[in-house]
Write a protein that binds this DNA or RNA. Sequence first.
DNA 1: CTGAAAGCGCTAACAC
DNA 2: GTGTTAGCGCTTTCAG
Lengths: 336, 336
Amino acid sequence: MSDIAKATGVSQSTVSRILSDATLAVPVAASTRERVRAAAAEVGFRPNPMARALRGAPTMLLGVVVRDITDPFFGEAIEAVSLAAHEHGYNIVLGSAHARGSEAVELTAVLEARHCDAILVLGDFGDQAQLLGDLESVRVPVIALWQAEATSPIPTVNVDNLAGIDSAMQHLEDLGHRRIGFIAGRPFGDIRQRQEAYARRIRTLVSDVPRGYIQSVPNTPDGGGTAMLALLDLEERPTAVVASTDVLAIGALRAALTNGVLVPHDISLVGFDDIPMAACTVPALTTVRMPIAEIAAAAVRYAVGLEQRTGDRSGAPVSVFAPKLVVRESTGEPPS
Amino acid sequence: MSDIAKATGVSQSTVSRILSDATLAVPVAASTRERVRAAAAEVGFRPNPMARALRGAPTMLLGVVVRDITDPFFGEAIEAVSLAAHEHGYNIVLGSAHARGSEAVELTAVLEARHCDAILVLGDFGDQAQLLGDLESVRVPVIALWQAEATSPIPTVNVDNLAGIDSAMQHLEDLGHRRIGFIAGRPFGDIRQRQEAYARRIRTLVSDVPRGYIQSVPNTPDGGGTAMLALLDLEERPTAVVASTDVLAIGALRAALTNGVLVPHDISLVGFDDIPMAACTVPALTTVRMPIAEIAAAAVRYAVGLEQRTGDRSGAPVSVFAPKLVVRESTGEPPS
DNA sequence: CTGAAAGCGCTAACAC
DNA sequence: GTGTTAGCGCTTTCAG
């Protein structure tokens, strides 16, 4: 920058004024501006964001912490956030927390230190009190997506899990199902909410959740398979199963099929998330789709907005978006 | 930092020496160190990486450009890179290129400007000459993963596509298949290599690639489905199909199954990548698995190593890792 | 309208 | 061993 100042015979501060578009505040002669611009272009000048940040300017970076980047759902989510961020001129610093406590903590330190303008937390970290605690003491705005701990003081934008499960249950009930099982993942956050929604709903059908109708397993295809097998073994076998995520549902589907149980002929299956693969299974999965793009956009808008009214972290407002049931081939009437 | 200098009555430079662990070069009294450390801890001191970077220190950031983050394969890849980077104390700045030219270019600008210590490019950007060109003029080391353009001057670490396809073909031939079709994605990079490997191999079986045996489609499940349908419609229908990616294979599988073609009874199917879902289809997919973790580790090691011997970009060395065939349920003997 | 100068937080010679 | 001093590249008062 000083180079170009010398080359054009202007002072470095003038160059700064021109190149940083502070022009509006302090007028600069058009002629000078032209010359400087030209010189800058010639040298291929690129402002150094480090230096800018050092002076207190925003870094235009959004930190993103994701619980498990290999989860196909979060792949889509990151894409959506990245897109939304990009629209505001922001870039993404990604940290995958690998669901291990120590790293997550370290991670927030990194993100904070990197002076992200805001931090976005994707997914439930309910089992990592550390992280959540740390996040509270971070100086930049933190906003959570797909994080459903009611206790959290962090502003959150999420999908309406209750509505999602309700629509799935309604669909199943309309089809004639009464004995409906549930496959749960981790017992906190989104999945816990979905489980509660299920439990509440099923109690309107039967006096209480039948023994074994809720299977808690790790949120993996294998977990889903294990759960399905257990459900299938029940004395009063359910005629339909709601899985709290598509990943679980896909595992459950495979388990049923490989054990000679036809879907949806013998048992109906509904997932949650609508990951791309959900449409590719045979039969294709009936599932609950969330408005990922909208959620991401809202979160980014919020993160960016928060930067202006600094420190305003009191409200911990929560935006909730409505999901939509996508009926495909994995649901049908109960076996007679 | 000056605060803690004042508080402990030492000079700020001493504090810096202690806190930046330059201790080794210039000895510091143990007592002073203790005091400073304590004070630093009390204030909750966190070094400002911006300032550090401004002084020329490495930013400990690795830029990652990925062609399509929603591709489940790249999800795993990013995780692996992230893990490997973490081991060297590096973090990841993620940029998804959305496979759109303009953005990709802009992206590299951002990454360069962000002063990443190196840039990792995941996947083929063969259709984006812009990006590749830009990358060449970037000052930091660039290293490519899963990028197979022979013309590229960028150091590359990749999987041995030829060996992968060969093992798939060998497996099929051992089973007795002679009429083997191929589903190709984009006509460049990894996929082109795989296609060439297929073409070479099939010519050892028949005089030339039979008409229509290579189906070129977009790298999506739908694309795979379309390709499979075309293959099935062929006069001399293949008894086996090799798909250049699992995503294609999964789509192809669904297309076959929903059209009453049994896999592997009527037609065998092999994928490539071994994405997590590959084990969850019914039948589970026989596929070619790459050593993702090793590839990521090699790339990161390289990226980090390159930083020391600056400017050494001449060789454009290429590391190639051997993939491994994973036999599951989608392959069997040809129908009699 | 433009220049001079003071830092942002930190590191690295170079003294003492 | 520790303090002094000079910047890294940029923004920003404050004077011309």
